[in-house]
């Protein structure tokens, strides 16, 4: 696999991190929307986008992979998709401590 940070490495140096799927807004969505996001999957036989990590450098990135042929089409840095910082604070505000 070609790591966007470290170049081509053996597949055993990487950890699979699940498919990439857009997260619903935890403050707005219903329980069933959240359950759908947490558990459900298209589990497609074909091209998918997924999270991977290079173990030694703890670097997370995205990969496009074919789940039938096991071909890795492309790997890229998450900043291609995540252009803004995401906040996980319950009310969406920045965690601030006095």
């Amino acid at each position: 696999m070609h790591c966007p940070l470290n170049g081509p490495r053996n597949i055993s140096e990487f950890t699979y991190g699940g498919e990439y799927k857009p997260m619903p807004d935890p403050r707005q969505c219903s329980d069933s929307e959240w359950a759908d996001y947490v558990f459900n999957s298209d589990n497609r036989a074909g091209l998918v986008t997924e999270w991977w990590m290079h173990n030694a450098s703890s670097y997370w990135f995205l990969a496009e992979r074919h789940t039938v042929t096991d071909e890795i089409i492309r790997t890229f840095d998450p900043k291609e998709i995540f252009t803004q910082r995401i906040d996980f604070g319950a009310d969406g505000s920045k965690e601030t401590t006095a």
Partner: peptide, 16 residues
């Protein structure tokens, strides 16, 4: 399993 479920639009937490 998922390949048939997808054709029916049934969402399920299955990974192959």
């Amino acid at each position: 399993s998922s390949l048939l479920l997808n054709k029916l639009g049934i969402r399920a937490p299955i990974h192959t």
